[in-house]
Computed example of a mutant assay.
Amino acid sequence: MTRDFTHLIQRWGDRLTRLPADHIHDFNLDSETIRFLTTIGLPADVHELERAIEINFYTSPRKMVVKDLAGVGYLVIGDDAGTTLGISLEDNCVYAVDFSGTLSADPVCFVNSGVDRLLESIGCFIDFKKRAEGSELIEHQLIGLMKDQLRQIDKRALSSAKTWWSQVIDDPIM
């Protein structure tokens, strides 16, 4: 089933950079992921991201390479100032991967069920971070609301305490 990405285009606008189809087609990704990366893309302007969450997206084909960990290939799409963000070539989900094996006992941490859901989730996080700045709601109320919205975007993103989003949300948002 093909998803409609109009809302993501409206949210990210001209900050999105489409990835070259000839480069992306070299990888064993599903058609939905290929379509997203080549027609929608990734945010190249991360100014809004830098104030809310430490994520850098790679839009240069030179940086988008496949790295292997324990027999699973990950197409590198960015980093979070600690781990590498990659799309698994097995299931097309996004993971935070510690290729050096020095940050935690489990070097692979689930992030989102797809790159589109990653961008939606980041947008949600940014919105709630901004909302927290001038809100009278207390932090745990905002976190509860944000978790509800993230679950609507991607049920797996908060499916356990070990997911990347669960760990990010555990950090104070105010």
Score class of each variant (00 low, 15 high):
R11E: 15
N28G: 08
D45M: 09
R18F: 05
I126S: 01
S104P: 02
V76P: 00
I122W: 00
S166K: 04
Q152M: 13
M64K: 04
G71H: 07
A96C: 12
D14F: 07
S159H: 10
W165V: 02
M146K: 02
L37T: 03
I143Y: 03
A161V: 12
Q141Y: 11
D14L: 10
T59I: 03
L8C: 08
A44N: 14
R35K: 13
G13E: 08
A70M: 11
D14P: 02
D80W: 07
D30L: 06
D116E: 06
G134K: 01
R11Q: 15
L119F: 10
R11Y: 15
S104D: 09
H47E: 15
I24S: 04
F110W: 03
A157C: 15
H47W: 08
T84Q: 10
E133Y: 09
E32Y: 06
T6M: 07
L85I: 11
H23W: 13
H25W: 06
G101I: 05
I169Y: 03
L145H: 03
P20F: 10
R117P: 00
K162G: 07
A21V: 14
D22T: 12
M146Y: 01
A161E: 13
V97F: 00
L103C: 05
Y95I: 07
V65A: 13
S166Q: 03
D79A: 09
G78Q: 09
L137F: 13
G114R: 01
L49T: 03
I34P: 02
V115I: 15
S159V: 07
T17D: 12
H25I: 11
A81K: 09
D98L: 05
V168W: 02
D91I: 07
V46F: 01
R18T: 12
M174P: 11
K63D: 15
A157K: 05
V65N: 13
L42R: 04
I40W: 02
G134N: 04
V76I: 09
K67T: 11
E139T: 09
F110G: 00
P43R: 04
R151Q: 14
R156D: 14
N112K: 04
T102A: 14
R18G: 03
Q149T: 14
P20M: 11
E32I: 05
V72R: 10
A70Q: 13
I53S: 01
S135Y: 00
R35Q: 15
Y95K: 06
D106L: 06
D45W: 05
T59L: 02
L49D: 05
P20S: 13
P172V: 08
D80Q: 08
C93N: 13
T38H: 04
L42Y: 04
Q149K: 14
A105E: 12
T33G: 08
S113G: 15
C124E: 03
L103I: 07
Q10I: 07
W164T: 00
D22I: 07
S159N: 11
